[in-house]
Design a protein around this nucleic acid. Structure first.
Lengths: 356, 356
DNA sequence: TCGACTTTTGTAATCGATTACATCTTGAGA
DNA sequence: TCTCAAGATGTAATCGATTACAAAAGTCGA
């Protein structure tokens, strides 16, 4: 209705407010950032001017002067992966409380995209970096560390002990997964891998191997299917599985997606889960409770992981790290659901015989 | 090994490079931003100094001076929702090409969080805003528009014709979904709603109603279950469904998650999908192809939606919008899979009789 | 009322780039 | 060789805040 247009916020500077209130810019600045240092009367005067003009400080100017951007960069391999999305939620919860913003560096599984984010760090657009990748991003000539910014690594064992790490106990959990399968009577195993270059994958496979060894088995007692952290990897593994004469009965998948893909595919061939083959996943994504049958898996404390990681980064930025914050390792939880069960002994024997 | 530490990038300013090359800061700046305007010899001199010093411009200073932040804000209701994650990927693809960065505003379904992002826009930390919400965020005293920034709305019918909209044809698709069910012989329907306050939900329900009317049915021919865009809504709807005497046979869910929750729950009671009840979802998330049975649904062109939205925003920022860019409406695609099928007539009659 | 001390406010430098304008170079043509 | 326009470079203002330091105002006891 009214013809009076809102004056766009960008046209009002601190000098305008100062003039309006009849004080200097220094005083306006003080009222806004350290109210205690200014007399009540002046304070009210300034606040009234701020209110009337609709002034909001230009944050870029603040950043330049204070040398703090109040933003952190979060580098993630792929945003559509529910695991990273959930971690990001935890990060966001923590950072919001501290007044920090998030700039996302989504690699979308393409390493050539990382250079961009290294430059972003080098040009000081952020105060710190949270890495969800298994390596330190680089841009050809430099890596992220040369920015001199605080960095926290998560989900991965980056081998630089100047970088604090907040991770989950992947290896231990993978080992327990094998133990769980052996206790159900399984003797032949399958391992569906994640992205080979990922250190998460590395840790999980290592844990798997340790579990195999701990239960007295050897490399001859399992097959490994290569892949990445997606549904189709599970489907491909299943197709390989279906062609085998002497099929494994206990399958460990390095992520829930591939576990789900595997199950979906074998069930189409009338293979029963868990009667014919047990499958255990990894991550505990929400979907895993809506498959048929529901997926046995290890739940990662993703939200907490994000929170703790962000908290450690905040401490690093504020320079009040304590040594015990330096490395955090969060445990996973086994969710016993429907895709795992005891080996049906008769079937098992007949399978065995056909090979020997 | 070497004791020579990398000098942190932040300590090198344009003045240092100028001194090193024996020129003025203006010349250094020109070499970096408009190379043509500088003599070859000087150019090489400066580049060498840049290389040797490892200089990278401080982007905050650039932003202050040029008044461009090269960042856009993307406000999304909930990041863990695969729909938004996928849109974000499209946005990211497009923006990266234009050299823009993304600051994410994750509301996590809590409206009180939006104030923060309004302030972010008002304090000019971004050059434009992409809204994935069904409304214009506000902070108590102002709304996003007062920032004076270019805004593009997606996924929703925000009623401000100064704001360009890039949306999907939810209403049309919902209508087609009903048509599809009626053609399969269904006569009683169920509608599992999304978040009531969401305009996406509004559009979908409206399309559903139009479909109902177009097929000659009335409000008495369907039940509506309230909820939000999550699995548990489908589970709750299923529990209500199970208690009914005269059950609908054609279910339309406003999102795939609730469709999946519904199916999961009813199958536990030995209800067959699609023989006893047909279910059609909405969105076409990746997981919908891995449920059992696989979900019939409408696929949203999410990635394209994100790309186009970002493209329109870029044009708005660069002030080269053409009128035909102003409103874009992308079509959805029906994915006919396993959760829908013809009504089994005998069952249907017996159900009918028991009511009349 | 005066002086010493504390509190409040103002002046001006500063953060690190870009860019309008001024000045100096260069080279073509006379 | 000289002139003059075009081209290259330099000087200094500018973006919009914060903050060190200086100056002014207020407080309080003698």
């Amino acid at each position: 209705m009214s013809r009076k247009r809102w004056r766009s916020v960008k046209d009002i500077r601190i000098a305008d407010v100062a003039r309006l209130a009849g004080v200097s810019t220094a005083t306006v600045s003080r009222v806004l950032s350290e109210p205690g240092k200014v007399r009540q009367k002046t304070h009210d005067l300034v606040m009234e001017a701020v209110r009337r003009s609709g002034y909001i400080p230009n944050s870029t100017a603040q950043k330049l002067r204070t040398r703090r951007t109040m933003n952190v960069l979060v580098v993630a391999p792929r945003l559509t992966n529910p695991v990273f999305a959930e971690i990001l939620r935890g990060v966001d919860d923590e950072l919001t409380q501290s007044g920090y913003g998030i700039i996302i560096g989504n690699l979308d599984n393409r390493r050539e995209r990382e250079a961009r984010y290294v430059d972003l760090a080098l040009s000081r657009q952020v105060d710190g970096v949270l890495l969800l990748t298994g390596y330190i991003p680089e841009n050809g000539s430099r890596d992220m560390r040369e920015s001199g910014l605080p960095i926290v690594a998560m989900c991965a064992a980056i081998d630089d002990d100047k970088i604090p790490k907040v991770v989950v106990q992947d290896r231990e959990a993978a080992q327990k997964a094998v133990e769980y399968l052996t206790q159900l009577g399984h003797r032949r195993f399958g391992y569906i891998s994640g992205t080979a270059s990922s250190i998460i994958e590395h840790e999980r496979f290592r844990g798997f191997l340790e579990g195999i060894a701990a239960a007295g088995f050897s490399r001859d007692d399992f097959v490994r299917w290569e892949g990445s952290f997606v549904f189709s990897t599970g489907v491909a593994a299943a197709e390989s599985f279906l062609k085998m004469k002497d099929r494994p009965t206990g399958i460990f998948a390095a992520c829930d997606e591939s576990a789900i893909g595997f199950i979906k595919r074998v069930r189409r061939e009338r293979i029963r889960v868990p009667q014919d083959v047990s499958v255990i996943g990894f991550d505990g994504i929400e979907f895993a409770d809506y498959t048929e049958p529901t997926l046995t898996t290890f739940r990662q404390p993703l939200h907490e992981l994000g929170r703790v990681g962000a908290d450690v980064l905040m401490k690093l930025i504020r320079k009040d790290m304590k040594p015990e914050d330096w490395n955090v390792r969060l445990p996973l939880t086994l969710l016993e659901r429907e895709t795992t069960g005891p080996v049906l002994h008769k079937d098992y024997k007949s399978l065995r015989r056909s090979t020997i």
